[in-house]
Design a protein around this nucleic acid. Structure first.
Length: 305
DNA sequence: CCCCTCACCTGATCGC
DNA sequence: TGCGATCAGGTGAGGG
């Protein structure tokens, strides 16, 4: 479920279930899913066991579950006025094929790589299965650091280089447009660069470019400010609409924490629509190889200018 | 510093 | 039924 809407659907599903839950036990079924964790599996397991999750956060396609500091775990049970801020988090990236599934303690899922048994003071026992066919995704324990911008928001160190996503209330539109104009590359490359703007992947890049009538290889330097502004608006619109529809699922591979698919695949105008008529002009949508992946667009509506 | 290519991986599905 | 080819929604290291 890897782009912003799909990750947000997972984050939103996790938040109420895991906040306040304690990690009772951990099973590493495939250590390659810890590729982003510095240190051996035992280090991951030792540090995570007994920890309590304080919430569920996200930036772009990364999400993380901050850990209640050990010294103040007690205060969750009997809240006190001042609780120290978390300094560590369980970072989850879904890669190309990752899923996070919440199950009862007896349910297993095919291709589960990491399993957490959780116990929640009011929701009872819960199993969290991290499933990932290709193992491009990962779980990792990481420390939280303040972002370099003025807001000093805390994010995991491995997320520090990721730009704010366009649904973030603190996304700086003027800064984005300025940095975009300074780039000397094609617009789709820029949209997919998570250090410039995060959360956009191949599907939503193609959809937003189609909506804004911009060719994927349009040079960023020649993209006028009004067209760039329009593109950003279309990016936001498509992400919001996809989120409202539960994300894009082509098959059972992309599902929410309960294993259910989203419906946005029915709303796609360009991605995967090669051979079908462009919903705007009726000419065929084409697919071209670009950056080792497919780019779907309408040759008539989307021309380099 | 910026830009771009490539390696990293598996298993579901399809055609022969 | 079996086997090989094909395909996929992401990321970052490293070279130019």
């Amino acid at each position: 479920m890897p782009e912003l809407p799909e990750v947000e659907v997972v984050r939103a599903g996790l938040e109420p279930a895991v906040t306040g839950a304690r990690v009772a036990s951990i099973e590493i079924l495939d250590a390659r899913s810890l590729r982003r964790h510095t240190g051996p599996s035992e280090d991951f397991t030792d540090r995570l066991e007994g920890a309590i999750f304080a919430g569920a956060s996200r930036r772009g396609k990364y999400m993380w579950l901050p850990l209640v500091p050990r010294a103040s775990q007690h205060s969750l049970i009997e809240p006190v006025e001042i609780t120290p801020a978390p300094t560590e988090a369980l970072v989850v990236h879904l890669g190309m094929s990752g899923q996070v599934l919440l199950r009862d303690r007896y349910t297993d899922d095919n291709l589960t790589r990491i399993r957490l048994e959780l116990s929640h003071p009011s929701h009872g026992d819960l199993r969290l299965n991290f499933v990932d066919q290709r193992i491009f995704g990962s779980m990792a324990l990481d420390s939280l650091v303040a972002t370099p911008d003025v807001l000093r928001e805390h994010v995991p160190t491995q997320v520090a280089h990721i730009a704010r996503d366009p649904l973030d209330p603190h996304f700086d539109e003027a800064l984005f447009l300025k940095r975009l104009a300074a780039r000397n590359t094609g617009i789709k490359r820029a949209l997919l660069d998570q250090s410039l703007i995060s959360g956009i992947g191949n599907i939503y890049a193609d959809e937003a470019l189609w909506a804004a009538r911009i060719h994927y290889d349009q040079p960023t330097g020649a993209l006028t400010r009004p067209r760039a502004t329009r593109l950003l608006a279309e990016v936001r619109a498509v992400l919001i609409k996809a989120l409202a529809e539960g994300g894009t699922s082509f098959d059972a591979q992309y599902v929410n924490v309960n294993g259910n698919s989203g419906y946005f695949s029915h709303s796609l105008n360009a991605y995967g629509q090669q051979g079908k008529p462009c919903p705007r002009c009726g000419r065929p949508i084409v697919r071209e190889q670009f950056m080792n992946r497919g780019s779907h667009f309408c040759r008539f509506c989307q021309k380099i200018r």
